[in-house]
């Protein structure tokens, strides 16, 4: 088990190296650069642009810039923001924490809703199945930013006391903080819960018709034992796969949701930095997000091995 985890982790290193190259290269392939964006106008002398670029080291060859950045990043130094001149790590961390909290709440909501509706749909069939599948189709057809906008409209117009835009920092009041993130998390979670729900339903139905479930019934086991040890444990593997992928996708979805609900998370920070061509910030965000997604995949692999003894990565 430990060996498997170490092997998985070591495999993420070359992937992250590739990601760092792409993140570095892509940003520089965009038209314009920080000097131009900072000047705010094209009517600026070449002298000024050259000075700005020299100060930031942008006049050096690109491979040299990459080498310096990578070396620093490996040492834990993600560089300084061009715009604010402050260390990126210091600016990114509090925002990352907000985004992480938002996606975590959304992930928990999505898993709870998806697993419950999927399981109910597969076990009860009939009317429940019909209602769940109808709702799922509807939710799948509506993108999360539309749901978010509708929520903003609904609560803004009819329940202004809820205060949708009142983000409360965690340090101020932890409870109010979680409360202020519930609506955005719900908007984020709905689409993801549909995928989990549909996959749970399919997995449980598939497992239900397996011979070993018939054997379990022939053993006279209680319904809850069959449900827990035979149905759910076997249905878990495919559900873990989609859930892992979907949780990673939540990270991307949070950018839109944070913008709509004005939550000071990584999404808004990224948006602003892209407009400013603030390379160090963008690179740091891409690198950190990729690391999170990769770690999520490693966790999914570990979960597989925990759930199903047949899984072996050696």
């Amino acid at each position: 088990m430990l060996r498997m985890v170490l092997v998985r982790l070591s495999l993420t290193v070359p992937i992250l190296l590739g990601v760092s190259m792409v993140a570095f290269g892509l940003m520089r392939a965009l038209p314009g650069d920080f000097a131009l964006a900072a000047a705010g106008t094209t009517a600026v002398s070449d002298e000024v642009l050259r000075t700005t670029r020299r100060n930031l080291g942008l006049d050096r060859p690109i491979w040299e810039q990459y080498g310096i950045w990578l070396g620093n990043a490996l040492a834990g130094d993600l560089g300084h923001s061009f715009a604010t001149r402050k260390p990126v790590a210091g600016e990114l961390l509090p925002r990352l924490a907000v985004t992480a909290e938002l996606t975590m709440i959304a992930g928990l909501l999505a898993m709870a809703m998806g697993a419950t509706t999927g399981l109910a749909s597969a076990r009860l069939r009939g009317r429940t199945d019909w209602i769940v599948r109808g709702l799922n189709s509807l939710l799948l057809a509506v993108p999360n930013f539309v749901v978010a906008t509708l929520m903003v409209l609904l609560f803004g117009l009819y329940f202004p006391t809820v205060g949708i835009f009142n983000y409360v920092p965690f340090a101020t009041d932890p409870l109010a903080n979680v409360g202020s993130l519930l609506l955005p998390a719900l908007a984020l979670a709905l689409t993801v819960s549909v995928t989990i729900s549909e996959n749970t339903r399919a997995a449980v139905l598939e497992v239900s018709s397996q011979d070993y479930v018939m054997v379990a019934r022939a053993k006279g086991l209680l319904a809850r034992t069959i449900l827990g040890n035979y149905l759910v444990r076997n249905a878990l593997t495919p559900v873990i796969t989609v859930t892992g992928l979907q949780l990673a996708a939540l990270l991307g979805g949070s950018i839109l949701i944070e913008t709509i609900f004005t939550i000071p998370g990584m999404g808004q920070y990224l948006f602003d930095s892209v407009s400013r061509r603030d390379y160090p910030v963008i690179q740091a965000i891409v690198l950190v997000s990729s690391t999170i997604v990769l770690m999520m995949n490693v966790l999914v692999d570990i979960a597989y091995a925990r759930v199903d003894a047949r899984v072996s990565y050696d």
């Binding site: 011979d211 070993y212 444990r233 003894a309």
Partner: peptide, 10 residues
């Protein structure tokens, strides 16, 4: 079918 009659995860 003994191949399908045992719970694979137990």
């Amino acid at each position: 079918d003994p191949m399908a009659s045992l719970n694979p995860v137990m």
